[in-house]
């Protein structure tokens, strides 16, 4: 097992090197001029040149690349100009915010989508199947910023049930001591129930927004793969042998149907983690997606490179994790080392 993991990680190295080179070149190919941008609205040509020199952008591309990779080797992802902070610190602070939101959103989606998908598959053509179809179509066709704004409008502005969409905590709470970076876990560890409650209530609306969006692929995939399995021979045999319908569906059919669902989940997760910029914007969420987009708008190279690199590493790890989980769920799947 360990050698397998080691080998898999080794294989990831060339692709990471590729990612480093490509992002470096791509960010340089962006049309904006960071020096002009950061010299401010009232800068003269000389002021812009001074800034360019300070940022090291007057050097040749090769020199810049060598500097970037040497710093990278020391774990330094550079400085963001838009926020003024080291990129590594920012990503470390922001990744948990995005991950907590995405995980909770995904959990909500799974809790609704998988039962819905299973029920739709066991009773195709019934009202529950139609419900599944309508929900998933609606969920995927409503843009996330729209769902987000709608939820804010109804639950915050009109009803006043939800707290102000002001990020991870109410203004007058301070963040719990960082252990995992997940406020829900950290506040429980600190036995601070008030903060826990505040963090949870801040999370619900954005998580629901994400859940509504990600319902569709999960529910559809569960339904499709359950349908395929339910019509297979071994399910018929199980039914013929007089096993209870629950046992047949859950133990035999669902376990076998889980592999494609798991793949979908991993894809949805990695997609949401980087792509929920709009949700982050709507809820003033200090996540990694909005960070990267703001940096991109300002031609701020370092955060963009750091973001892409982090995402690449996350993908590698996530794929590895999914592969391992495959083996756990279905012992027939054994990874080739």
């Amino acid at each position: 097992m360990l050698t397998m993991i080691g080998k898999r990680l080794m294989f990831a190295i060339p692709s990471l090197i590729g990612v480093v080179i490509v992002t470096f070149l791509l960010t340089r190919a962006l049309p904006g001029d960071p020096a002009a941008y950061f010299a401010g609205p009232a800068a003269s040509k000389e002021a812009i040149e001074q800034i360019r020199k300070k940022l090291g952008l007057d050097k040749s591309l090769a020199e810049q690349f060598v500097r970037y990779t040497t710093e990278l080797a020391q774990g330094d992802l550079g400085q963001s100009l838009t926020t003024g902070q080291p990129v590594a610190t920012e990503i470390r602070n922001r990744l948990p915010a995005s991950a907590e939101l995405t995980l909770l959103g995904l959990a909500l989606a799974v809790v609704i989508a998988i039962p819905l998908g299973i029920m739709a598959a066991t009773r195709p053509g019934s009202w529950i199947d139609h419900l599944c179809r309508v929900t998933t179509t609606a969920g995927v066709s409503l843009p996330v910023f729209f769902t987000g704004l709608l939820l804010v409008y109804v639950f915050y502005f009109k009803l006043g049930w939800s707290p102000a969409p002001l990020g991870r905590l109410d203004v007058f709470y301070s963040a719990p001591t960082t252990v995992t970076g997940f406020y829900l876990i950290d506040s429980l560890l600190a036995r601070d129930l008030e903060t826990f409650r505040s963090a949870l209530s801040q999370l619900l609306l954005p998580a629901a927004t994400l859940a509504i969006f990600s319902l569709a692929p999960i529910a559809r995939m569960t339904r499709a793969s359950m349908l395929a399995i339910l019509s297979s021979d071994f399910v018929r045999t199980a039914r013929a042998s007089g096993l209870s319908p629950t046992k047949v569906t859950m133990t035999y059919a669902f376990r076998n149907a889980m592999l494609p669902v798991l793949t979908t989940l991993s894809m949805v997760f990695s997609f949401l983690l980087g792509a929920n910029v709009l949700v982050e914007k709507v809820f003033a969420w200090p996540g990694i997606g909005s960070y990267a987009v703001e940096a991109l708008i300002a031609s701020d190279f370092a955060p963009v490179q750091g973001f892409v690199l982090t995402m690449a590493v996350m993908y590698v790890l996530l794929n590895l994790l999914i592969d391992i989980l495959y083996g756990v769920i279905d012992p027939r799947v054994r990874l080739e080392g």
Binding site: L149, V152, Y156, P165, L166, V171, F283, A284
Partner: peptide, 21 residues
């Protein structure tokens, strides 16, 4: 002074009208 960044203009208005900001 607590100064929060709220990127969505619509939400800034909602915060004001609800009396939170």
């Amino acid at each position: 002074v607590i100064w929060r960044m709220v990127p969505q203009a619509g939400n800034r208005r909602a915060l004001l009208e609800r009396g939170d900001a």
